[in-house]
Simulated scan of single mutants.
Amino acid sequence: MPEATRTAGERQPGVAGERQPGVAGAVGERLPGVGRIAVLRANALGDFIFALPALAALRAAYPDAELVLLAAPWHAKLLAGRPSPVDRVLVIPPAPGIRAPDPGEPRPAPEAMRRFVEETRAEGFDLAIQLHGGGKNSNPIVTALGARLTAGLRAEDAPPLDRWLRYVYYQPEVFRYLEVAGLVGAAPTTVLPSLTVTDADWAQATEVLGAPTRPRVALHPGATDTRRRWPAGNFAAVARALAADGFEVLVTGTPAEAETVDRVIDAAAGAARPVVGTLDLGGLIGAYDQCELVISNDTGPLHVAAAVGTPTVGVYWIGNLLNGATPLRGAHRPIASWTVHCPVCGIDCTRGIYPARPGDGECSHRDSFVGDVPVAEVLEAARELLRPPS
Rank of each mutant, 00 (worst) to 15 (best):
A44C: 02
A71E: 14
A4H: 15
L192A: 15
G319K: 14
P140N: 00
V276H: 15
F50K: 00
E118P: 08
A241V: 04
G324K: 09
V344G: 07
D360V: 15
S194N: 07
D64F: 03
S364I: 10
R351H: 06
M1I: 13
L149D: 02
A241Y: 07
E257A: 05
A356D: 11
T350L: 12
L321Y: 08
E111R: 07
G14N: 10
W74T: 02
I285D: 13
R30Y: 11
T260K: 08
P110I: 06
S364D: 13
G361T: 06
L78V: 08
G134E: 04
G25N: 14
T120A: 15
E111H: 14
C291K: 06
A112C: 00
D367C: 02
C349D: 07
E3T: 04
H332Q: 10
A271N: 11
A109D: 07
D199I: 03
R82P: 02
L67T: 04
A269W: 07
V238A: 06
W74G: 03
I265P: 02
A244D: 13
P388D: 14
A181F: 07
R216I: 07
L55T: 11
R383Y: 14
G17C: 11
L293W: 08
V313W: 10
L195H: 14
P110E: 10
T252P: 00
T190F: 12
G97D: 11
Y169L: 00
D201C: 14
A205N: 12
G134H: 06
T260V: 15
A305F: 00
T213W: 00
L279H: 13
V308E: 06
G97L: 01
T190E: 03
G46E: 05
H303M: 02
G133C: 00
R214E: 07
P140C: 11
A122L: 13
G359Q: 01
P334T: 12
T7H: 11
Y169I: 01
A71T: 01
L219S: 09
A61R: 15
L386C: 10
G22K: 10
R229A: 10
Q20E: 09
E248I: 01
G359F: 03
P193D: 04
G359A: 00
A258L: 05
L322K: 11
V261A: 08
P172W: 03
C291D: 04
T143S: 14
V315C: 13
S194D: 07
Y169V: 05
Y316C: 11
G124K: 05
V304S: 05
V308F: 08
I295C: 13
V217Q: 05
Q204H: 02
L284R: 02
A306E: 15
V304P: 04
T206F: 07
A181H: 12
I285W: 11
P103H: 10
V251P: 09
H220W: 02
R154H: 02
A147H: 01
P159T: 08
E377D: 08
S368Q: 07
G33M: 12
L45Y: 04
A112I: 00
A158I: 04
F235S: 15
L145V: 08
L178E: 09
L70N: 04
R82E: 07
A109R: 05
T226L: 09
A223V: 02
A239S: 09
I335C: 12
V375D: 01
